[in-house]
């Protein structure tokens, strides 16, 4: 009896989950299709590049600078513990930074900075019927709202990732000189013996993918926001939570793909 009830509940839950999932996929796909038409609103796009990219530079530089320093200290500890040798610390920290931490941490930080904002903005526009107003004016809300944010976010993700890498690697050079006694020349020789251009290319592809996930997920949450103020907050929270999760999953998939090819 209980088992039957549990089974039915489970099937219903699974069914509901799958239905939601496929609805999500189809909505997101149609959103991407619309995005790829790239109906360009230059001024709005530029504004978003400024708001999402330029205004995030400072926080990224500070955060990623510290991540770079932390990596040097932590890897030096590991290497000295296991290998009794720390000459490869710069290479490993730079490699980890370029291939993984650079794009992932930058985009997670970017998500918390801009994801919630995008979801809340679109959510409140929905509540105040601005989205319906756009439709009445024959303007696609995706063209008007999502495309500029999408371009802005991809721009922000890629540029901020590259800047983060530079900060982390040069910061690492400074700390390696102080702590490990590695001269800058030696540091860069070791780093760029291991870090090759394909790694940088992977890094940029990753950051572009993560950067495009942020506005897509956030806009989805905003468009599907409920009709009260609490719903806007919930949409913003969900946007950050889901985007972070999707970034980590996408990172695994991309790493796997790059490793395979």
């Amino acid at each position: 009896m209980i088992m039957t009830w549990l089974g039915r509940a489970l099937i219903l839950k699974v069914g509901e989950f799958l239905a939601t999932f496929f609805l999500w996929i189809s909505t997101v796909l149609s959103m991407i299709k619309q995005l790829l038409k790239l109906k360009f609103r230059a001024r709005e796009t530029l504004l978003q590049m400024y708001l999402l990219g330029v205004q995030s530079v400072l926080i990224m530089v500070v955060a990623m600078g510290f991540v770079g320093l932390m990596l040097i200290i932590e890897l030096a500890f590991h290497m000295n513990l296991v290998l009794k040798h720390d000459s490869l610390v710069p290479a490993f920290s730079a490699l980890l930074m370029v291939r993984e931490l650079g794009p992932v941490i930058t985009c997670l930080l970017l998500t918390s900075r801009i994801g919630a904002g995008i979801a809340a903005e679109i959510g409140s526009m929905k509540i105040s019927e601005q989205l319906d107003a756009l439709k009445m004016l024959s303007i696609d809300p995706i063209d008007y709202l999502v495309v500029p944010r999408w371009i802005g976010s991809v721009f922000a993700a890629v540029t901020l990732t590259v800047i983060s890498l530079a900060i982390a690697i040069w910061g690492g050079a400074f700390l390696a000189a102080q702590k490990l006694g590695t001269s800058p020349g030696e540091y860069f020789n070791t780093v760029f013996f291991f870090v090759k251009f394909p790694d940088l290319a992977h890094c940029i592809v990753k950051s572009a993918v993560f950067g495009s996930l942020i506005p897509i997920v956030a806009a989805y949450q905003g468009f599907n926001c409920g009709s009260d103020s609490a719903a806007v907050g919930e949409a913003a929270t969900q946007a950050v939570v889901r985007t972070s999760l999707y970034i980590i999953i996408a990172d695994f998939l991309l790493t796997y793909l790059f490793y395979a090819i």
């Binding site: 590259v162 800047i163 890498l165 860069f188 760029f192 090759k196 251009f197 940088l200």
Partner: peptide, 15 residues
């Protein structure tokens, strides 16, 4: 800035 950094990286990486 990013273009310049990419050129520097590319040069350091020998690409």
């Amino acid at each position: 800035t990013v273009v310049v950094l990419l050129v520097i990286f590319g040069w350091l990486m020998g690409a």
